[in-house]
């Protein structure tokens, strides 16, 4: 394609006046953007706008067929927010997101640092670490549901064989959210390791050599060399993590269906159930719009951070 840059207008063609040609050029260039624009409109803008609008409508199963979905103002929002479940689901959403991110990041960081010091078989082990990422989420959650079963799950079998009492991982309202967070941490570790490991690779070795000459090794090297240089990667990782974790539905539905007694119900799972189980699409849309707004705050943060990264 190197010669494609050379601009040559066929000589036989009657020459157009310069401004005229430039306009046509701009036109044809922007037309090439059209597929991308149509794609974004069809698959991103349309669903989001449709969802926003649906939040203000009384949208039931009948609306799909008749196309009639009267506007009811803020009634959907009023109804979901006034339910006692709203605050609980919101708190669960925040705890689930914060807990998952903290666990994924701390363990991911530890593993990334561990694999950064190359040792025999480290590449093989690092690829094996990606396994949880490769499994379909339904498979992961079904397997974990069996592992965490109170009566016949492996974890309780081990606990009981060592004389400890088994835990009602998924059936006790006080433990279930923790159990779900643990599973989500397990799922998120590979992504964190992959990104952080890449970040570590980018830090020049000679910086560590220079630091060690100044007497900074071990923890001090981490605090003064690794962490400052890794910070842009960390920020992007955490912001993406928030957006990915806020919307988790499948893992929670697979593990507990939002139970016991709504102990693991988040805004995302509640929205799913309201729309597709109770067929109340207006209220379901209202809930997911609330989630979109929370995500949007973090998405804007992400854009700012990544732009600053480029500027630097």
């Amino acid at each position: 394609m190197a010669d494609g840059i050379a601009v040559s207008v066929p000589a036989s063609r009657p020459a157009l006046t310069r401004p005229h040609r430039r306009i046509r050029d701009t036109w044809s260039k922007s037309l090439f953007l059209l597929p991308a624009i149509l794609f974004v409109i069809a698959f991103f803008a349309y669903p989001v706008i449709k969802n926003l609008v649906m939040g203000f409508q009384s949208y039931t199963t009948a609306s799909f067929y008749t196309g009639e979905s009267p506007f009811i103002g803020l009634a959907n929002y009023a109804r979901v927010i006034s339910q006692p479940l709203f605050l609980k689901a919101l708190a669960n959403t925040l705890l689930f997101t914060a807990g998952s991110l903290l666990g994924q990041f701390v363990i991911g960081m530890g593993l990334a640092l561990f694999f950064h010091r190359h040792f025999p078989l480290s590449n093989l082990l690092r690829s094996l670490l990606l396994l949880p990422w490769l499994l379909p989420l339904m498979v992961s959650s079904t397997s974990w549901k069996l592992i965490l079963d109170k009566d016949s799950g492996v974890i309780n079998q081990i606990l009981e064989s060592t004389g400890l009492a088994g835990v009602s991982w998924l059936t006790s309202p006080s433990v279930a959210l923790t159990a779900v967070v643990i599973v989500n941490i397990w799922i998120g570790i590979p992504f964190n390791v992959a990104i952080l490991y890449g970040g570590l690779q980018d830090i020049p070795e000679d910086l560590y050599e220079a630091a060690s000459l100044d007497g900074a090794t071990g923890i001090r090297a981490f605090a003064h060399v690794t962490w400052p240089l890794l910070r842009p990667v960390v920020t992007v990782l955490l912001v993406l993590g928030v957006v990915y974790t806020l919307k988790v539905v499948d893992i929670i539905i697979g593990l507990t269906s939002g139970g016991p007694a709504n102990a693991t119900q988040t805004i995302a799972t509640w929205s799913y159930q309201t729309s597709f189980i109770s067929f109340n699409f207006g209220e379901g849309a209202a809930l997911s719009n609330i989630l979109i707004i929370i995500s949007l705050v973090f998405a804007l943060l992400y854009l700012r951070v990544s732009r600053r990264g480029v500027d630097e």
Partner: peptide, 10 residues
């Protein structure tokens, strides 16, 4: 009464 496991919740 313990005649049913609390696992039934899941």
């Amino acid at each position: 009464a313990g005649s049913v496991s609390n696992s039934v919740l899941n």
